[in-house]
Structure formats: structure tokens, C-alpha cells
């Protein structure tokens, strides 16, 4: 049980990078970008193929990030220059990427089991330094000893560093213009900002994070598969919505932290759900969709309830007032 939760958190940090990308397009740019389903696999495919051909896994992951940027930019160009509706631009790119991903991999699945990956490299370095013993010592009271802490800690660090960089970027002059593009497009152009360029850049950045996350997931899971991106946008949305509902989104820094939290909570919910006897691994997408539905509907219902109660209270106060007067 604790092993399942541990690996849920571990993978939660990796998927959080994808979720931060979705946050950037969905919340900051107000652009529901379905490219994600394709670009996630593109990242995985590029990294996997490079690693199999002997490229350094860190370099391979960086290349995946760049390729993701290009994919996102193309979606941006389709929308801004081609005047295609946002959803359709993303869907077109998603479908196009499916074929491109197959071309990159040359087949539908590339295993990475015997390869040097970011994960194996970190684990080795970690064991050489003897850090696992140190951490297990601290947590000895819990009686829980994982295979290694290396992936858990480094992926947590990577996710947090990306979050901090994103926070800083969104405070720069370009970052402010990026946020305003999603907030009030009309107004940004009247202050000399090129919203076309900003949308292209923003979607590029978003999909760069998604592809990077895909590259890491492939190395974590030990394979890249052409179907691994199906429903990825929904998982991203689930993370964003769950995170915001649980941890709040009053400031950007708070919201990006919430997105990481949301990604982890989503993984934990999924891990728990899959322990239910009746459910099978094939049900994952259905579970995800239901989680998102609940996450979208419940906060609205709670808000409506609160509003109702508030109005009732007000009416009562007025009633008493009249009575006493």
C-alpha cells in the first residue's frame, strides 16, 4: 500500500510538469489546447529513439523539450495566422502528431528497459553518494523502505524548479503581456503587444513542458508508446482543477504550486481507485473522466449551496429586523 502511494507521488511530480504546461495554455492563455495528447508522445518518442541510439539521456530529454516547443508553436500558428478555431487547431495538430510520432519511433512501441536513462543515472549517482541510507534513517520510524529515493527527490526538484521559473517568467514584461493576452486580448494590442506572437510563444512553451514530461515518463516507465498520450489533456485538466479547488489559486505562485499538488492528488486517487477489485487498468480513462466531471461539478454545487444559504440568512436578518422594528 505505502509503495503504491510512494510511486503515485513519484510519478505525480513527473506528470506535474505536463500539468504546468496545461495550466499555461488553459488558464494563462485561456486556450484549451488539445495538442497535448500528441506532444506528450512526441516528447516520449524523441527521447526514446535518441536514447536507444546512444544519446545522453539528459540531452535527449532537452531535445524532446525543444521539439515540443515546435509542435506547440505550429498549433499557435494554425490558430493565429490560419484563423482556425482554438479547439480545432489543437485537434488537427494532435492527429498530425500521431503519424509523426509513429514515424519518429518507426513502430508503435520503443522499450527502454536495458538503456541508460535519466532515472537510472540519478539512481546510480544517488547510491554512490549513499543518500538513500541517510534518508531511510530519517524515516526509519515509519518502517517503509522504498527501492530508492533518487527519482522521488530529483523529480520533485525538477517540478519545483520549473514551477519557480514559470512564476518568474509570468512576472516579466513579456510574461505580463502573455497573461494579458489570455485575460483581455483587445486591450493588449492597444498597448503594442503582438497577441499572435505571444499566443504562438505561449503554446510553444506549454507544449515544451508537456513533451519534456513525456520524455521523463517514458524513461520512468521504461518505454515509449504511440498510445500513451490518449486523454493526456484530461489528466492535465484534472490536475489543474483538483489543485486549484484544494489549494487555491489566488496568486500565480499559489496556482502553480496547486497544479503540482493537483497532479499528485490525481495520481493518488487513481492508485487507490485501481485497488478496488472491480476496476481494471483499462478503466483508467473512465476513472479520469469521472474525476474531472466531479472536480468540475462539485465546486459549482458547493458555491451555489453557499450562495443559497447566504441569501436565506440575509432574508432572515431582514425579517427579524422588520419584526423588531
Amino acid at each position: 500500500m505505502s509503495t503504491a502511494i510512494f510511486s503515485a507521488i513519484e510519478s505525480g511530480f513527473i506528470y506535474a510538469i505536463m500539468a504546468l504546461g496545461v495550466y499555461l495554455s488553459f488558464r494563462i492563455l485561456d486556450f484549451p489546447d488539445l495538442t497535448v495528447d500528441g506532444s506528450f508522445v512526441t516528447g516520449a518518442a524523441v527521447a526514446a529513439v535518441l536514447i536507444v541510439n546512444g544519446t545522453n539521456p539528459f540531452l535527449a530529454s532537452a531535445v524532446a523539450l525543444l521539439v515540443g516547443f515546435v509542435a506547440g508553436s505550429v498549433t499557435g500558428i494554425l490558430h493565429t495566422k490560419g484563423k482556425i478555431n482554438p479547439l480545432l487547431s489543437g485537434i488537427l495538430m494532435m492527429i498530425a502528431l500521431y503519424s509523426i510520432n509513429l514515424r519518429i519511433m518507426g513502430r508503435s512501441n520503443v522499450p527502454l528497459l536495458q538503456q541508460d536513462t535519466v532515472m537510472t543515472a540519478m539512481t546510480e549517482a544517488w547510491q554512490k553518494a549513499g543518500l538513500d541510507e541517510a534518508i531511510n534513517g530519517i524515516f526509519s520510524f515509519s518502517g517503509f523502505v522504498p527501492r530508492t529515493w533518487a527519482i522521488f527527490v530529483t523529480m520533485a526538484l525538477v517540478a519545483i524548479v520549473i514551477k519557480l521559473l514559470l512564476d518568474q517568467l509570468l512576472k516579466t514584461e513579456i510574461g505580463l503581456a502573455l497573461r494579458a493576452t489570455g485575460d483581455n486580448k483587445q486591450m493588449v494590442s492597444s498597448f503594442s503587444a503582438n497577441t499572435d506572437w505571444l499566443t504562438i510563444f505561449g503554446l510553444g512553451l506549454s507544449n515544451a513542458l508537456v513533451a519534456f514530461s513525456g520524455a521523463l515518463v517514458a524513461q520512468y516507465g521504461g518505454f515509449s508508446d504511440v498510445g500513451m498520450g490518449i486523454g493526456m489533456i484530461v489528466i492535465g485538466l484534472a490536475s489543474v482543477i483538483i489543485g486549484e479547488a484544494l489549494f487555491g489559486a489566488r496568486t500565480i505562485a499559489r496556482a502553480t504550486l496547486a497544479v503540482i499538488g493537483g497532479a499528485i492528488v490525481y495520481r493518488i486517487i487513481l492508485a487507490l481507485a485501481l485497488r478496488v477489485k472491480f476496476l481494471e487498468t483499462g478503466d483508467v480513462k473512465l476513472i479520469t473522466a469521472v474525476i474531472v466531471m466531479i472536480a468540475l461539478i462539485v465546486p459549482n454545487m458547493i458555491a451555489a449551496q453557499k450562495e443559497k444559504r447566504r441569501k436565506k440568512r440575509k432574508a432572515q436578518e431582514r425579517g427579524e429586523h422588520v419584526a423588531s422594528a
Partner: peptide, 13 residues
């Protein structure tokens, strides 16, 4: 945002 109307936007805060 308005202050940058006449200037090129950069990666400065």
C-alpha cells in the same frame, strides 16, 4: 503592461 506601450518588451521584471 501599459508602461511598455512605447518600449520593446523584455525578460526583465
Amino acid at each position: 503592461l501599459a508602461y511598455n506601450r512605447t518600449k520593446r518588451r523584455t525578460l526583465k521584471f
